[in-house]
């Protein structure tokens, strides 16, 4: 579904992503784990079109999307829940969700998806008219995921969904990710919480200082000595 081939991304003279190639198949959950500064978020932002590659190619559903604008990429079916959630804090929960559907024009479909998202996140329904800034961290993350789902993505990019959340909320968010997959949405998740991410991932990659150093199924990596040592605390 998504093929990334040998991409290089720079911030000015500094190389953040070095010859990264990866693949995501339809219906999978793919995790990318790595520590701070490994380039995880850079990779996500590149896939969304917010950053440009210097070389390499990104293909989605057999179409080259390397140089497309972010809104064109959303239209093709890739949407992102960005790092740090980036919800619109001065707008209501309802408005936040509507912005997620900004690339769509089918009023009826938007209504149905809104209902669907609110069924999945009942707490958002309770707070529908509230300013999104008044939500708790967990609710904000749910809103960010719900907002990304409003564009009817084929591929959902999740950037550090567990960041700053209490352990029980982290578990809840990962349950939601599994549910989303069950509904046929392919998920690419980037995480520092390697344990949780590998636990639900069909396949995973390990990113270190801009390069992919390991790959395998979630279970393989969860039990690999190298990963245990570096990311799971021995």
């Amino acid at each position: 579904m998504l093929q990334v081939k040998d991409i290089n991304v720079y911030y000015g003279a500094i190389q953040a992503i070095n010859n990264v190639s990866l693949e995501v198949e339809k219906g999978e959950i793919v995790a990318i784990i790595g520590s701070n500064g490994a380039g995880k978020s850079t990779l996500m932002r590149t896939l969304s079109g917010l950053l440009r590659t210097r070389s390499g190619a990104i293909r989605f559903l057999d179409e080259d999307i390397t140089d497309l604008e972010p809104d064109a990429i959303v239209r093709r079916g890739i949407s992102q829940s960005p790092e740090g959630r980036k919800i619109f804090t001065n707008m209501s929960v309802h408005e936040n969700l509507l912005i997620g559907a900004t690339t769509r024009t089918d009023a009826q479909g938007i209504k149905e998806d809104m209902e669907h998202v609110l069924e999945r996140f009942p707490r958002l329904r309770e707070r529908l008219k509230q300013n999104a800034g008044t939500l708790s961290g967990g609710e904000q993350q749910m809103l960010a995921i719900g907002r990304a789902l409003m564009s009817q993505p084929k591929l959902l990019l999740l950037d550090e969904p567990s960041m700053g959340l209490a352990p029980n909320l982290v578990a809840e968010i990962f349950d939601i990710i599994t549910d989303v997959k069950a509904e046929g949405v392919t998920v690419l998740v980037v995480e520092q919480n390697a344990h949780k991410a590998l636990g639900i991932a069909d396949r995973a990659y390990v990113l270190e200082t801009g390069s992919l150093v390991l790959q395998g199924t979630g279970q393989e990596l969860l039990h690999s000595d190298k990963v245990r040592e570096a990311y799971l605390g021995g």
Partner: peptide, 10 residues
């Protein structure tokens, strides 16, 4: 509110 986030939303 947030240019980058709106861009990411399409």
């Amino acid at each position: 509110e947030d240019e980058v986030a709106s861009g990411a939303m399409g």
